[in-house]
């Protein structure tokens, strides 16, 4: 059933969700580009961000101060990320690089199970919603929840801020240099382990920010980070590991393909369309759309 209005609405919906997917993917790709490790527990940091947002809005600040809860939640996840990096990952990176990836994989997978079980144990398996007082907003012909529009705007602002810091600040330069050569930057006096700590904290804070932003839209429960992690990894493969523009463009592409596929091909296979795109990219361009450019950045 094709109608212009339905196509436009579906495109808007796809772009909106795509940008939010990109925020998640950005954390994964940023941590990888600096530390050369995959954080498999990324979804659990998303989950923590959503629980923090719920706790702050429902128990402390109230729905009117939802916007204040968002940076606090992201900061909480950043602080937790620093602790995780210092206690669990730093010891791995002090040793020679052999099997570092394997250790990091085991540690982050164990962390995934631990955090998920802790969430179930502490908050129970039930769903929660921090609620939102924001009114429905018309974006063209498409009515959208105020919380979703706010999440979209916050996500775009966070992506822009992150890009500017990385591109135009001294610390951003150090981060980019570390992504090019971990040994080389040490000759310039940069503390690589310090950079690792900040990179891990910022990477998981981006996931926490996504969790906080999406808490009123997609609800809060122990496994809510799972699907966003899967999308994040899909985007990383499509956009290219280590590429920030790649993450944004791939996120929007994934959101669009899923939405249009679900609306006009078969709604039962919404997740399959993204995987089909991943397979296509792997065949045609194994480094992703912006893979090489990202590695040079």
């Amino acid at each position: 059933m094709f109608s212009t209005e339905l196509v436009v609405q579906t495109v808007i919906s796809g772009v909106m969700i795509g940008v939010l997917y990109a925020l998640m993917a950005l954390g994964i790709t940023f941590i990888y580009s600096i530390m050369r490790m995959i954080n498999w527990a990324m979804g659990e940091f998303y989950m923590i961000g959503s629980y923090l947002q719920y706790a702050l809005v429902a128990l402390l600040l109230g729905p009117d101060l939802w916007w204040l809860a968002i940076p606090i939640s992201a900061a909480g996840v950043f602080a937790f990320g620093l602790v995780v990096q210092w206690s669990l990952l730093k010891p791995i990176f002090r040793k020679p690089p052999e099997a570092r990836d394997d250790y990091a994989t085991v540690v982050t997978l164990a962390l995934l199970l631990l955090l998920r079980s802790l969430a179930t144990g502490l908050a129970g398996p039930n769903q929660f919603s921090p609620g939102s007082n924001l009114p429905v907003v018309m974006v063209g012909p498409m009515p959208l929840a105020g919380a979703r529009v706010a999440a979209f705007v916050f996500a775009l602002a966070a992506l822009a801020l992150f890009y500017c810091l990385l591109r135009y600040s001294w610390y951003g330069l150090a981060l980019r240099a570390t992504s090019q050569s971990r040994i080389g930057v040490q000759t310039a006096g940069i503390d690589v382990q310090g950079v690792d700590r900040i990179a891990f904290g910022v990477g998981v804070a981006l996931a926490g920010l996504a969790g906080a932003l999406l808490a009123p839209v997609f609800l809060v429960y122990p496994t809510n980070g799972l699907i966003t992690t899967v999308k994040g990894f899909e985007i990383v493969v499509i956009g290219g590991l280590g590429s920030i523009p790649g993450a944004l463009i791939a996120g929007v592409l994934l959101g669009l393909i899923e939405s249009l596929g679900a609306a006009f091909i078969d709604s039962a296979y919404q997740n399959i369309y993204g995987f089909a795109l991943v397979l296509l990219i792997l065949v045609l361009r194994p480094t992703g759309l912006f893979g090489e450019r990202g590695r040079e950045a």
């Binding site: 059933m1 109608s3 209005e5 339905l6 609405q9 579906t10 919906s13 796809g14 969700i17 997609f218 809510n224 799972l226 699907i227 899923e258 939405s259 249009l260 679900a262 609306a263 078969d266 709604s267 039962a268 296979y269 919404q270 997740n271």
Partner: peptide
């Protein structure tokens, strides 16, 4: 009939189809 995978969290495309119906 509009089916969906239960792991999907954004059901807007499915609901837009329904609204159009």
């Amino acid at each position: 009939k509009v089916p969906f995978d239960r792991t999907v969290t954004d059901l807007t495309p499915q609901l837009l189809q329904i609204k159009a119906f």
